[in-house]
Design a protein around this nucleic acid. Structure first.
Length: 519
RNA sequence: GCCGCCAUCGUCUAACGGUUAGGACUCAUGAUUCUCAAUCAUGUAACCAGGGUUCGAUUCCCUGUGGCGGCACCA
């Protein structure tokens, strides 16, 4: 058996989001699993949809999440060129072949006539499709008009009788009545092929064995099957993947409905393994006996476990909460050393650096402030990596994405803290009472911490003892100290923080807090 | 409107004629705890409807309903 060959065939819009990743991931996974090839082919036959650097930007996005290619415009290969606009002669040759075989014909209908036709059909509640007017123009006459320079397209002569049955790896048998299928345009007036001609020709010429694409292509699958037959070619196996829907379940996922570009997902601090893990779980689950109870899988495991035959037919909704959960799990699965490494890479490459697609994607509101935060903190983090590691380990299982780190660790790196009223628990005690309590507890803490020795038992005893003295609930006093020393109501265990901060900083924060509370 | 595809907790899903319909996320409760998180318990919550087939249907068939997709000289 010859090797499997898969292909991703995007048009160069420059846009890559979760839906795109999900669509192309199976190619990569299966190519790795079976030792096949993953091929990238650029479908740029629509001149109106070209984006500067779109191809490069997309390749960058795919490869950053771990989808790599064995052949493609950036890799080369024996089946090139891999950009359709560089293959025009090939399509023309095959279109001509179909004309000569009598399987296609020249069509001279104007766009106006076509529009009118559709309008009347739709008004009569008929299906809107080309009526085949030019189908019966004698070959010689048509050729004469073409030679005379009359604008024309080439349409395939789809059979009128009978039906066409297509076999799909996921959907099984899909059949249509041939009379429901219109004579698809194969070559456009500008001399470029349409998608329909180009996929068939290229999938054949590039030796594609398995063509995986979105279900939105299912309706035109029969056209492709018939085209393969007209050429006398064995078609690849086709698999149509279900869509990912917006969170509200309406319409397929798009950037308009919360589908962030991959560049922003990475910049926010989602790990590529989490992106793979989440997106492949939309519409697929492993065999029960191979499934992990927590649904967390490494890329290697996905390569081993994924198969087309368990892919769903139903569309899945995009679920941000689950994605966040999966990301936090992958973060927790990293060792602290690995996490530190990843944080630095992320900060430098994704936050301070740029993606090619940044040129034309609308920046999100948070991107600017994240970049500022990283500019400020990254040098401090790197100045003492051991210190950073200790601080980060306290937040390791508290974050669900890397972008939360700067804010989570701020009090370790700030010299001054600032508060708002809501940073304090004033349910049981006023700000003045809190200030007084802090003033009184400060010397007691000084006593036990001044040598930067942090004795857990002693610290608990002192705080609880003083709370009793005040007649306060222990929690209220701990909370006051927490707000004073971290600037917030929630933080890792205080003493763990203090061991990293050191007494000098803790004391300074408490003094600042007293001043603020008395203000 | 026409054509096609699909249908299990709110969401992602398991099940492949016989189960108290399982898991994960979310949510709620409890344990733990100086708060948060994590962890561990526990709980709420689903077979779209109606007909068949069958000893027996969530599972097979039909119809309806609903959702999605497609209906370009876009991919």
């Amino acid at each position: 058996m010859s090797e499997f060959r898969f292909r991703a065939a995007p048009s160069p819009t420059g846009k890559v989001h979760i839906g795109t990743i999900r669509a192309y991931l199976p190619n990569y996974l299966l190519a790795k699993k079976y030792g096949g090839k993953n091929i990238l082919r650029i479908e740029d036959t629509d001149q109106k949809r070209l984006v500067p650097n779109g191809v490069e930007a997309m390749i960058e996005a795919y490869e950053e999440v771990g989808i790599t290619f064995d052949e493609g415009p950036h890799r080369g290969g024996a089946f090139g060129p891999y950009v359709q606009s560089e293959r025009l002669e090939i399509y023309r040759k095959y279109a001509k072949q179909l004309i000569d075989q009598g399987d296609a014909y020249y069509c001279f209908c104007s766009k106006e006539r076509l529009e009118e036709l559709r309008a009347t059909q739709s008004a009569n509640k008929q299906k809107t499709m080309y009526d085949g007017l030019c189908r019966n123009i004698p070959r010689e006459e048509a050729q004469k008009r073409v030679d005379g320079g009359e604008p024309h397209v080439i349409r395939m002569k789809f059979p009128k009788e009978g039906g066409t049955v297509c076999q799909d790896l996921i959907f099984g048998k899909v059949s249509v009545k041939n009379s429901d299928v219109e004579d698809q345009v194969l070559m456009k007036g500008d001399g470029f092929p349409t998608y329909h001609l180009a996929v068939v020709v290229d999938d054949h010429l590039m030796g594609i064995t398995t063509a995986i694409r979105g279900v939105d292509w299912l309706p035109s699958y029969p056209k492709h099957v018939v085209l393969f037959k007209m050429f006398g070619w064995e078609p690849p196996q086709f698999a149509h993947l279900p869509l990912i829907l917006n969170p509200d379940g309406r319409k397929k996922l798009s950037k308009r409905h919360g589908a962030f570009p991959v560049s922003q997902i990475l910049r926010k601090g989602y790990l590529k393994e989490a992106i793979m893990n989440y997106s492949i779980l939309c519409g697929w689950a492993p065999k029960p006996e191979e499934a992990h109870q927590d649904e967390i899988y490494t890329p290697e495991e996905l390569i081993q476990l994924f198969d087309l035959d368990r892919v769903h037919k139903t569309a899945a909704r995009y679920d941000q909460a689950k994605f966040d959960y999966i990301n936090s799990k992958h973060i927790r699965n990293l060792s602290i050393d690995a996490l530190v490494e990843r944080v630095f890479q992320w900060a430098e490459k994704y936050v301070l650096g740029t993606f090619m697609s940044d040129e034309y994607t609308e920046p999100a509101e948070w991107e600017g402030s994240l970049k500022d935060a990283i500019k400020k903190y990254l040098p401090l983090w790197k100045a003492d990596i051991e210190h950073f590691k200790r601080a980060l380990s306290l937040e390791h299982e508290r974050i669900s994405m890397l972008a939360e780190i700067p804010a989570a660790l701020d009090f370790f790196y700030e010299e001054e803290l600032s508060w708002e009223d809501e940073d304090w628990n004033t349910k049981n005690h006023t700000k003045v009472e809190l200030a007084t309590a802090l003033e009184n507890v400060l010397p007691k803490l000084e006593e036990i911490f001044k040598k930067d020795v942090f004795d857990h038992e002693e610290w608990e005893k002192v705080v609880r003892g003083y709370a009793d003295e005040l007649g306060w609930k222990h929690g209220d006093l701990f909370l006051a100290i927490r707000s004073a020393t971290t600037g917030r109501l929630q933080s890792p265990p205080l003493l763990d923080c203090y061991e990293i901060m050191g007494w000098k900083k803790v004391r300074s924060f408490i003094e600042q807090a007293i001043t603020w509370l008395n203000k």
